[in-house]
Design a binder for these strands. Structure first.
Lengths: 336, 336
DNA sequence: CTGTTAGCGCTTTCAG
DNA sequence: CTGAAAGCGCTAACAG
């Protein structure tokens, strides 16, 4: 019951003593083909177990119905959530998804993009790695006519399409919440200082303090390289302060997990001696005995979905000139 | 600086007044082409910014250098870990990866497989959904000459290649550990009764008790449908028992999270009144104040890597007849 | 060492 | 409404 070579249009044609072109048209429900022949063709096609050779079609149509997704990591929950929604959108549109992870390695990232280009994907969705400095690939893909939408971690360029989250809104809410709970010694454990994501957080933090008329104190902002050691030394800096903060916003949940553990080990009581809010990238706080007061949610799934939808629009309307910039507001979610 | 149409071999040939085949050969470093012409060809190719049209090559070679990966979910940590390693292996081999998630929907799963087939992927890696009953797709792909390797959740068929974890080894270790800590009232919170994964756990559990000379008690095995409500009712059943168990092995970490929370709410003290070990699918226990005593680890990354490596072997040696069955031992990891 | 020719499977003018 | 023929870009016999 196995057919070595799958049936082709030609064979169907031969069987029916009609021309291949007619078969092709019939199969594609071309209006100018008689109903009867169309039926006969489809019948034989079914009998022969015909399956169109997509590689031939891709080749002919210069379209692959495939999009590429390039992310720093495929296993990080934030990106997993995004991926999952991206796949859903693609599935709805009858597209397939090729994935690659850069692991924050700029060379690997570049190689993946190259591969996607040679595979002639119809579009690319991308979140750049932390070490990516060189954005020449943008021109590369543009030259190849492949639309690209950046999301979450995006290059600092004007003429590109981006979907990002506004880290400010959530930060303002967080500081408001702290203040309304009576805190005024509010600190920020930030990521690596030059990271755009860190700069945004810092700016938002300053703005939040200002809105609440709390003076900014440089020693209340500490940085971590996001390793456990870095997180530890960051929180220790704060704890060593003569007037240590009673409230802390942290770069993300991983940082929060680490620093909250240290705080506990030091004999302080969470949500009493010291309070935390963090940017969310990890979902299971509800099971913790002492979760942070709240999390700043960035909705990775929604971002991924939106980015994918935008990409499909661009694929359908290739000649869009104006860069689209979509911003998702981050917002506070209670945990406690 | 944009070239509407990318350069083709023909144009290079024309420029150099040689034949396309020579160009093709030169570009592929065919040994029978003179070094000088090879150089000249490559130079012009570079000038013209030539890029081979992969879709044409795929079409011609009947090979796509692409593998398909079909999983129940792209966002579950267990699968994310596997995906990440699969992508690594593929990247090493210069392959690309197409991903699809079935969301445990058998129809969607089937459609994805169809798509992969029409996309002419060179091989498929798959973990089947919970509701998949019909394995006809196995024959479908076999008929198309596409090798397939199943991992983690695999169909109950003989003539297929599989990579799975042996749930027994970890269970035996778990029960040993409980017993050596003085427990004899050891319970199992299992998943849906008919799920192969549940049956295996149950069998392993029975075997473990037997090895330790502990009589099996039917009421110590309860089932959950893996929803929070199901988990809750499962643990409540156990707690309501006249001699409630002091030790529990749970189906997976999500179940453990839920039931441990309930236990706490009921005023019991974890790791004192009642002890837990669960099959791991979630990594962050170290941050919990009261983690389970231990976890039974299944090494999703290793499994994914192994499955991918096996698939690439099969792609290179298409005429393998004997089904390969690889088993990973699960094993206990201390958490406390 | 290089050129000629044919063809992968499909779509698509252009003629009837 | 249908057929003939050309061609997408590349590779690979088969000749020289």
């Amino acid at each position: 019951m196995k057919e070595g070579k799958p049936a082709t249009i030609k064979e169907i044609a031969k069987r029916l003593k009609i021309s291949p072109s007619t078969v092709s048209r019939a199969l594609n429900d071309h209006p100018s083909i008689g109903l009867v022949t169309t039926m006969r063709v489809k019948k034989v096609a079914a009998e022969l177990n015909y399956e169109p050779n997509q590689t031939a079609i891709f080749f002919k149509q210069r379209k692959t119905f495939t999009i590429g997704v390039v992310l720093p990591s495929l296993s990080e929950p934030f990106f997993s959530a995004a991926i999952s929604e991206i796949e859903n959108v693609a599935h709805e549109k009858n597209y397939t998804v090729i994935m690659g992870q850069s692991l924050d390695d700029a060379d690997r990232e570049f190689r993946i993009l190259q591969t996607l280009k040679t595979h002639r994907v119809d579009g690319v969705l991308m979140s750049i790695g932390k070490n990516t400095q060189d954005y020449q690939f943008v021109e590369l893909l543009k030259g190849a006519g492949i639309p690209i939408v950046f999301f979450d971690c995006v290059p600092d360029l004007d003429n590109i399409h981006t979907v990002v989250s506004d880290l400010e809104t959530g930060m303002l809410e967080a500081i408001d919440m702290f203040v309304s709970c009576g805190h005024h010694a509010i600190s920020l454990i930030n990521g690596p200082a030059r990271l755009p994501a860190s700069i945004e957080r810092r700016n938002a933090y300053c703005k939040g303090l200002e809105k609440c008329n709390i003076p900014f104190r440089e020693e209340y902002v500490v940085n971590t390289d996001l390793t456990s050691e870095g997180n530890e030394s960051a929180i220790l800096q704060l704890l060593a302060l003569p007037d240590r903060p009673s409230a802390v916003v942290s770069f993300n949940d991983y940082v929060a997990l680490d620093v909250m553990m240290i705080v506990r080990q030091r004999g302080l009581t969470l949500n009493q001696d010291i309070h935390f809010i963090s940017y969310a990238n990890y979902p299971l706080w509800k099971y913790m005995e002492n979760p942070p007061m709240a999390s700043i949610e960035q909705f990775p799934g929604d971002q991924g979905r939106k980015a994918a939808e935008l990409l499909f629009e661009l694929i359908q309307t290739p000649e869009r000139t104006d860069p689209v910039k979509i911003v998702f507001k981050s917002s506070l979610i209670n945990q406690a």
